[in-house]
């Protein structure tokens, strides 16, 4: 009886913390079919179908998913590389750990500001390139801020999220690594086999929840997208916000349908994360 009461309390508490988002989903759902919100037009799925049928919506989703995947992949590869290169306790290794983790708490907005100042066509890198004779003017600098491909966004967010993945990698290598690797070596595995069969699977399994978190954070990032992306295609959060403030009231309602799209991506990622964490803990 007492156990059942506890089970209810825990679930209710989790539900209360999620409530603002759940209510938001419900509200956005009602607004998306025209039953609530700005530009309310009576019940009907017309708006949802219009937004889902609009190529711009899917371009935004694809832009956000594609750039988040690319930035996450770059950050993860760099984190694993640095983690493996600096596994020791010597001074240089400790310095590498500290330098890797140092930018960890920098806000996205600050990273994006630095990205703009560094990477734009008249930014610091362009000036350095001009100084050494690589380019003859700003126009020759490759466009990476406000470009359709989102190169500047990917580079900035990869830099921003590298410290978090590096921190998790250092921790995995320090805690789970040695015992498992030693066991493999004792059983006769060569260093190469140990690396391929023990170290790398342990890292990929242990890193997966963190990788999913990083993907979610980048895909949902508004301010970095607003500062670093171009006007077409736009990241999903930026397109959502612009629709929400559209001078055309009937288009404002479209923001709710886009909000639902963003929340669907978020909910999917949460489910994946919980599954990955259970899987990762089993393997640990």
């Amino acid at each position: 009886m007492r156990a059942r009461g506890r089970a209810t309390i825990g679930l209710v508490a989790g539900g209360l913390v999620a409530a603002p988002v759940l209510i938001g989903i419900a509200y956005a759902g009602l607004a998306a079919v025209g039953l609530a919100g700005v530009g309310r037009a009576g019940a009907g799925g017309g708006r949802v179908f219009r937004v889902l049928g609009d190529p711009e919506s899917w371009e935004a989703v694809w832009w956000s998913v594609r750039t988040a995947a690319a930035a996450t992949a770059i950050a993860a590869v760099a984190a694993v590389g640095v983690g493996l290169a600096f596994r020791g306790q010597a001074r240089g290794h400790r310095a590498a750990h500290l330098l890797s983790v140092l930018p960890l708490p920098i806000p996205h907005l600050v990273a994006a500001a630095a990205g703009v100042l560094l990477l734009s066509q008249s930014g610091v890198l362009a000036r350095l390139a001009y100084a050494v004779g690589l380019i003859n003017g700003p126009a020759q600098m490759p466009l990476v801020v406000g470009d359709p491909a989102g190169v500047g966004f990917v580079l900035t967010l990869a830099w921003k999220e590298f410290p978090f993945l590096a921190l998790v990698t250092f921790s995995l290598l320090a805690t789970r690594g040695p015992a498992m690797e030693e066991a493999a070596r004792t059983l006769g595995a060569t260093p190469r086999q140990t690396f391929r069969r023990v170290t790398m699977p342990m890292l990929s399994r242990g890193l997966l929840p963190a990788i999913i978190v990083v993907f979610i954070v980048i895909a949902g990032s508004y301010e970095a997208g607003a500062l670093l992306s171009g006007s077409h295609p736009q990241p999903l959060p930026v397109l959502t916000y612009e629709r929400y403030l559209d001078v055309d009231l009937s288009r404002r309602g479209d923001a709710y349908a886009l909000t639902l799209l963003g929340l669907v991506i978020g909910v999917t990622a949460v489910a994946l994360h919980e599954w990955a964490r259970a899987w990762s803990d089993d393997g640990g």
Partner: peptide, 14 residues
């Protein structure tokens, strides 16, 4: 997962 939802949902959507 419920507690994680407000963390993971895009702030703009929330």
């Amino acid at each position: 997962a419920l507690a994680f939802l407000p963390v993971a949902a895009p702030a703009i959507a929330v």
